[in-house]
Design a protein around this nucleic acid. Sequence first.
DNA 1: CTGTTAGCGCATTCAT
DNA 2: ATGAATGCGCTAACAG
Lengths: 363, 363
Amino acid sequence: MRIDDDRTAETTDRGAGPVGGAPSVRRGRPAPTSKDVARVAGVSQSTVSYVMSGKRPISEKTRRIVLEAIDQLTYEPHAGARALAGHRTNVVGLVVPFHNPEAASGLMAFAEEIAVNARDHDYDVLMLTAAEGPAGLARVQRRAMCDAVIVMEVATDDPRAAMARELEMPVIFIGVPDDHDGLHCIDFDFETGALLLVDALADAGCREIAALGWSEERVGLGMNYVPRFRASAEARAAERGVRLRWISAPHTRAGVEGFLDSVLAPAGRSHPGLLTVHSPHDLGAALQQRGLVPGRDLDVVSLCTDVEAEAQPVAPTAVSPQPRDVSRLAMGWLFDLLDNEIPAELRLVEAHLTTRGSVRPLG
Amino acid sequence: MRIDDDRTAETTDRGAGPVGGAPSVRRGRPAPTSKDVARVAGVSQSTVSYVMSGKRPISEKTRRIVLEAIDQLTYEPHAGARALAGHRTNVVGLVVPFHNPEAASGLMAFAEEIAVNARDHDYDVLMLTAAEGPAGLARVQRRAMCDAVIVMEVATDDPRAAMARELEMPVIFIGVPDDHDGLHCIDFDFETGALLLVDALADAGCREIAALGWSEERVGLGMNYVPRFRASAEARAAERGVRLRWISAPHTRAGVEGFLDSVLAPAGRSHPGLLTVHSPHDLGAALQQRGLVPGRDLDVVSLCTDVEAEAQPVAPTAVSPQPRDVSRLAMGWLFDLLDNEIPAELRLVEAHLTTRGSVRPLG
DNA sequence: CTGTTAGCGCATTCAT
DNA sequence: ATGAATGCGCTAACAG
């Protein structure tokens, strides 16, 4: 049986470090535990726990004393112990996609937003890679490494969808798999975004639209937003009696040039319209080289973030997929999901058109 | 006192799921524990533990039986429990920098390489943000959330350096703070890289070099590699009797154009040399627009990855900072550090010049 | 309102 | 070569 504490009841020697800029970590000393806090505060260990969790009423007086002791010892709870006893890790898993230079910037924005939101709720982020596939999700659940997972860059036919249905823990997909029944999915409303962009060109009088879509690689990986956007754009173009053409290899210099050759060469063609996705860097230069100015010689609209738009020589009228909004909402949903039972659902972030003068007003 | 097990000694009902594609996670059932494995295998719990850790000799026979039970139950150890009892989390922290579109691609490559290496050692990656500053390092240590941390995008005068010295846990800096005494730092050898690039131009007969460096933002943040590279390049240029000029705002279109105007306008100037860092996308287009071809009308060398180099209209002779090599080596060092006491040290990854024909052979 | 107690699932020290 | 017993630091149920 235990003979009680090995540590004596001194309340002073574990106090603050050297005067003036005491380091918040002291070498050699083991990290203080809630028992240490309890001793310093002169209360029981469970009281310390309850002060931290707020799961039962505590008198204002003891509350203050305990918080003071916590502060004095710079105590922080042992994550593993807490997870073991409390069945909660305070960690969310984030499955990041395979490296993709084209989309890297957007992905980092996503990830950062998620990490910051997590910290706001005293959560941390475990970085999982797409390389682990569905098995990765099962692994982190069985090891109890996180309370929920966010999956980015979902494919139309994504094997992680089936796995997510088997898991106990909440999984939020950023993107919409074909069969998203029973899944919690959130994404930008690419369908409406496509409508807005096609309409912007059609309203300006364009009879013909050339679209520079996602890279071949993205398409090949079956990214869910590609068909969502394309199908919607095509449907609307048909409705408006506009011809819509998709360009292959849109993100190579040759692709851009070839496109310009074929579409714009017959000078005087009526109202050529350009719809770009994440405007390829070369496009601005290519147009410029041909003396073509968006909003004067042709109409250009784009699906891209505001930052990307403003970076163009001529900022295009655009619809932003709002990566930060999407991840912020995803996190809000996730935290809701952790405490409450919420039925599976598909949530879409509203699309808006930002007019920027790359489209000629119909005159 | 404990009345022993609540679970009966059946060894069959927790077996594999439905025949043919049994899901590896079964809803409703609690995750199996090492005790479950022990019961199924007919051994003690500690034996299961020792089979997994290999920390004491186990007969081949029981070893096999235990592994079989583990497999059958798809058992995985509870991360929190393991961390609590074993004082090891099997997690490495990774501090990712503030969002920076310019460098996002490289950072994702870093992160992916680190994550993959971690998984190879049965480690996971906790994503920390630079926003937490030095306090973030202290926090994850006190909470026992990881066994070591890797810090990316280190500043010349980085507050995390001081914190790292206080910590018990290993911290590896990717980058070299000014005062790196007592720190474990690893990075690409930017100094030698600069020498190689300046030499390449000087050897080709350039008397004048214009350098397009990092963005103002990077410089403003005090990124350690900026002065390391610049100082070394300047020193070598002086040695070689070459004039070296740094261009401000190198990553704006105006910056690039302004630079070309001032340096190249006086046609026939002797051997203009260009040294670029992460070639701005616009540079290729800008040169092309002026009818200038690297390797014919001027000499261009670059500090950029092979991928970035090959993406240019004319692939430049270049030195690659080898992000993947650096992170792989960092992880190797880290795992070494976890088991062995290794003195602090600065490790540099060797620089190599890859000749690609953007420099005219001296004739 | 607060203290006492029993595990959470594992690693590890004793025993054999 | 194996088993039994202990405790890591915490949460939550139980007892006042």
